[in-house]
Design a protein around this nucleic acid. Structure first.
Lengths: 199, 199, 199, 199
DNA sequence: GATGAATGAGGATTCATTCAT
DNA sequence: GATGAATGAATCCTCATTCAT
């Protein structure tokens, strides 16, 4: 129980997430985290074996809401329009991701950190998550005849998420939230296609 | 005259690019760079004012080939198929980018490094580059009736490049080259569209 | 509570003062200070933001005793002889200054260090100090008729202290304590005058 | 004769003197000197075995004019007033010293540099210089009855020069030329005396 | 559990000096 | 004589981590 310990732990994670977003990974020192969390420097090591584990925990913390947001998608197959369903889901993903994108980038940029990602910090680890649910949704729509029969739902999902990630990070964007209009444009383009001829 | 200096400079850039790719930005210390380049640590500072400038130079070094690769694209409008043209171009981009992606990620992850990007290291700076050329190509194909009349070439280009970036970095990828098949799939998807009905 | 921290801080200041006196400012590296203080190099930075601040603190540490020594002077006006009073005071100043003269010289020789002196390290900063007290004393003696009526006490104080500083540093001196006889000679000369005629 | 080498040497000394005065000893790097002198970094070592020797040479360069200025003093004994003679001499000294005071301070602050001063850079070294000449002058005036018979000319000279040095450096003064009025005040004070009673 | 002083290896950078051209 | 690229030891400082209180 010990509500105090739990609060400290949560504070540490909140501080870490905030600092990485605001000042970048390089500037997020243990001292800065401790100060931002309002605890002593040594306290961190009561809750996490080392700094990398704290980062990992911060990253996973966000995973819950993301999963939830996508969990509902497959059930919407056949309702409304495909475009609206996808746009809604991707916008939610973009919003949630905004908080952790800097953490993800830090991991991508630092192999040593990324190595930690291999071994999930607790047995079982995070569930299937967004990619699987979106693919499920696309397959369902495919069965309903609202998505081309010759498309590969998994491949399409991969590309869909790649667009999302690319737009979130992309060169034109000063770091900041993804333009929601851009998300709709992307989904529409992916649905409609760019070409005029059958091939 | 200063063949030696030129060689040293090139060696430094090569070493930096290689190290960032292999061990990540955080591990790429000035000492490691010097050792890999076969020079003394102080020598670095005769060629670059500081470490960030060296990284920037390494990044820009790659810019030339990238620009060249895309420069030829607009001229191909109307020849072959749109799909093949785009796939060819994007594959080239992917290959070239492979070398600098870790550098780009480092910049994205470290605001301090990114700040350097604002002031281009030499007057004039890099030219328009890939986005503009690809948009030009799409517009040309549009005039030829091979791309939907109601598409926005610039917006489409943005999305095209976002896919490419997302695929290069994306969650599935163990760091490594982008699967060329994935590129073709993405282009085909973008051309054909995922949907069946107009909405 | 923090007896240990206080002791470390004092040790750092003592080590700094000693090293600057013995080997000069240029040789007084952070490593040497740490070694002499018996602490790790990083420990210095828990107590002082940077090296210059440590020097400044070492300088101010000495300020207390100096001020006290001169504080008593004005009260002696009219007692004993003017010569003895001044000689006693200046000898004390010379002794105290001996410890910090190298620090003062370092500041004079290095504009960057001197720049730190501008902003006093704590609000309020050091009080009026020696010059004012000596001038007060001279003015008091003047009212008692033991100092020429046409003398300017402030000007005379300035010159008195200039002699002291000049003797402490001056060309003849192998670095070391000021000869006390020289101080008496100087005071006597300043009181008696060198000339015979009014002009 | 090689006028070019001579000019380079002079340029190096000029640059050194100027830089030490303007930016302080610590900032006067060999690179800065070379740049300011308009020569390559390595060239310095054609003319001086090391940096300290260059500093020493710069210091001695100034010695000539100083000596000359004081050389004429003994001959003025008996002419004009003692005050005017001394004031004139000291003011000249102050002006000349202004250029090298930073160099002298640097030497005083750095024992390693000061060690070089012991062995004069060329046999014979500089002559007796100011102290002796001023003492000679005072002794001459003493014989003429214009200086107290019981004064010690050498001791008085020492004190006179100490005042000058102290005023040039002194705490109140922002670094800059010595106020000529202050010099006259000091001389007058030393001649007239501060006291009213015979002892 | 929490604290924060202490650690010390390691980081980027500087600079007097050397030497091939 | 002059050049300037190269050197590498040394500098100040940072920071994840430990441990006595």
């Amino acid at each position: 129980m010990s509500g105090r310990a739990d609060r400290t732990r949560a504070e540490l994670i909140r501080a870490t997430t905030r600092l990485v977003r605001e000042v970048g990974y390089a500037q997020t020192t243990t001292r800065a985290i401790a100060r931002a969390a309002g605890v002593a420097e040594g306290t961190m090591y009561r809750h996490f074996p080392d700094k990398a584990s704290l980062f990992l925990a911060a990253l996973l913390e966000q995973h819950g809401p993301v999963v939830e947001a996508v969990e509902r998608l497959p059930a919407r197959a056949g309702q409304g329009t495909v475009e609206d369903n996808l746009v809604g889901c991707l916008r939610e993903l973009a919003t949630l991701r905004e908080a952790v994108l800097p953490l993800e980038l830090a991991m991508l940029a630092d192999p040593e950190l990324a190595a930690q990602r291999r071994r999930p910090p607790y047995p079982g680890g995070p569930g299937p998550g967004p990619p699987v649910r979106i693919a499920e949704y696309l397959a369902a729509e495919q069965r309903l005849g609202r998505v081309r029969a010759d498309a590969d739902p998994q491949r399409a999902t991969m590309i869909l998420l790649a667009v999302l990630f690319g737009l979130a990070v992309g060169p034109p964007a000063a770091p900041g939230p993804v333009d929601p209009d851009l998300i709709r444009d992307a989904v529409r383009l992916l649905l409609t296609g760019l070409g005029t001829a059958p091939g």
